[in-house]
Design a protein around this nucleic acid. Structure first.
Lengths: 352, 352
DNA sequence: GGATCCAATGTGTACGTTCACACGATACAC
DNA sequence: GTGTATCGTGTGAACGTACACATTGGATCC
């Protein structure tokens, strides 16, 4: 690996051992293009009054030197960066991470860079610390994926100058949010089971502190009440397949249980296993509906009827909203709702 | 955008109703602490020769003003930032994203910030473009999660001054890598099935261009050959449960098929469904072993015997390696291997 | 006692960029 | 011909930080 420097004419205060040569600056470009650095700046920022001929010369020089503007310098001078901070709650819920793809993609399209920070826990202090770390990056806006009541709380304590959007945040909060209409999803899922002829529908929910837990509970109950069905007690889970399994063992001992709406796919998977072990056929003896439509849901045994959440879309919308705030200075809290979709597969059927 | 806000007022720290005042600088801190800005800098950077009393005064001022060093200014001055770029291949493989948590956590501990870039596709141009975007952030190092041959290829075309570590990259490449010993995992999985008494083990692999596909294939074949077992043709999959399902339909028509090693859990899930539909009992008629030990694997029906990959650990090690390169100037390619672990559950048993 | 050294702190400068202005041309009006 | 817009371009600052050096005061040395 005999690697050599290509250019050593420039002022390289190179350390011994052949450290990197300084990347080209706007001044280097100006020198090559035979203009002043300010003209280069104008070209790069799309300022109108530059002669086409000059612009071309500059662009040529940029190309030739493989020049890239220093984000650090721009940020320092302007005070605002084109970096968006994304705070994610460090929990095994990897589905939520899918929205990261939507987030990055949209951010990139709009010319923003995405930095991430993980949240160890959800207390106010932890969020403050994470935001503090992001603040050092002079982030232009903050996106938070932490669908917990406490998060919403801590968010309102942030400096009001920082645009913030929460994914799956409280829709009544003063911070803007983008989320899926959890209640509607739960309602549709429950109605689906009722329409099939089930007398009532049991529910396995998530942890109480999660936003979705409450919303899905509400939707489920609303559907039951609207149909005049009895509202059974809901079982508490924690999103894991294990908690679904345990709930399944419990439910399988109930005689009048023919349909269960699980708070997410993983818990539905646990239900499926529990019912199978107890000799209950799905959907013959009991119907199961999940929530999320994760990648595996179509291949559960049986394939799972569930409510699809378009995480990418949520990420996309969240960035659009956030960038709107950053650039437009929109201050009022907005709440964007993405509609979920019921995906009917083979885990739900009419009771026999 | 003609409405420029004039904020020429004095640098008031907390103007009670005021608009976005500039964040406090090192000079503001110095003023409050009654020292020069240089002394503040020394305190912040842990320079030894500062009187404890002075240090305390500075720290007090920092606290009081809620001062945060400007990453932009530091980056501009030093030329190196404390931002690490992470390039992820935009594919539904959300398990791999789990390593992001390990990555962020370790990076944070070492004082680094993590920026992400998604890769739309895996051609050289796409990677170059993504790296270019990250380069504008003056990233100190690059981590790439794209276990594809082509990635390794494109990586070697990067400027040699940028420290790079690949997750699950080729262990023969000139770029350093951290990965799980895929071949060992495959070997253990296959040996497990052979030890149970199966005559041979079928394999459903991943897409040819993925690194892991090749390695797992190699391990599987090595185990079979070492045991003197016949080596059946391996079926090609694409990591999705669907491809596993399709492979399962095919395999279920073979008479001598009693054990299958799937390239990942999702394909194993597809196998399970296919076998179930074909009336093949697992593990009664056929044993199935997966790879990954995703969150759901313990609750498949039956719970899946699989090979555990510790993604978080991989992320952690990758950051350690990368930061070592960044700070220590280590140039030689290193290849860190994390050992996987066989998790025996109920999907594998002796043939009857 | 003066010279020497070190600890503790302060003063300049540069990093690469953008912003506010100044400057020279050309153009058009009178 | 002089005045005044307008265009294209250049000059001088400044952003917040780290580094090289300069400057103190005091302790140690002989």
């Amino acid at each position: 690996m005999a690697n050599q420097h290509e250019r050593d004419g420039a002022q390289t205060d190179a350390a011994p051992g052949g450290k990197a040569t300084r990347p080209p600056s706007i001044i280097d470009v100006a020198a090559v293009a035979n203009v002043s650095y300010q003209t280069v700046s104008r070209v790069l920022n799309g300022h109108p009054s530059v002669r086409p001929e000059t612009r071309l010369a500059v662009l040529d020089a940029v190309e030739k030197l493989d020049y890239r503007p220093s984000n650090a310098a721009r940020t320092l001078k302007t005070g605002r960066s084109r970096t968006l901070g994304v705070l994610v709650l460090d929990i095994a819920d990897s589905d939520g991470l899918t929205s990261l793809y939507g987030i990055e993609h949209s951010a990139r399209e709009l010319g923003y860079f995405v930095g991430i920070g993980a949240l160890d826990s959800i207390d106010r202090g932890s969020i403050q610390a994470a935001v503090g770390r992001l603040a050092e990056q002079s982030i232009a806006g903050l996106l938070i994926i932490a669908p917990i009541e406490a998060a919403s709380d801590a968010l309102s304590a942030l400096p009001s100058s920082l645009p913030v959007v929460a994914i799956e945040g409280s829709s009544t909060s003063t911070v803007s949010s983008v989320g899926i209409d959890q209640a509607a999803g739960a309602r549709v899922a429950t109605e689906h089971l009722l329409t099939l002829g089930h007398k009532t529908v049991f529910h396995v929910g998530g942890p109480a502190e999660w936003m979705q837990t409450q919303d899905r509970l509400t939707g489920w109950r609303a559907a039951l009440e609207a149909a005049g069905a009895e509202v059974p007690m809901s079982l508490p889970g924690d999103w894991t397949a294990q908690s679904g399994y345990e709930a399944g063992l419990l439910l399988s001992r109930m005689t009048d249980m023919t349909a269960v709406f699980a708070g997410n796919d993983q818990m539905a998977l646990g239900l499926l296993l529990a019912f199978s072990e107890r000799g209950l056929a799905v959907p013959g003896d009991v119907s199961v509906v999940g929530f999320d439509d994760g990648a595996d849901a179509p291949y559960y045994n049986p394939p799972l009827t569930t409510v699809r959440q378009d995480f990418r879309e949520v990420g996309r919308r969240a960035i659009e909203l956030l960038v709107g705030k950053v650039e437009g200075g929109e201050r009022a809290a907005q709440h964007v709702v993405v509609e979920p979709e019921l995906i009917v597969r083979r885990s739900s059927a009419s009771p026999r």
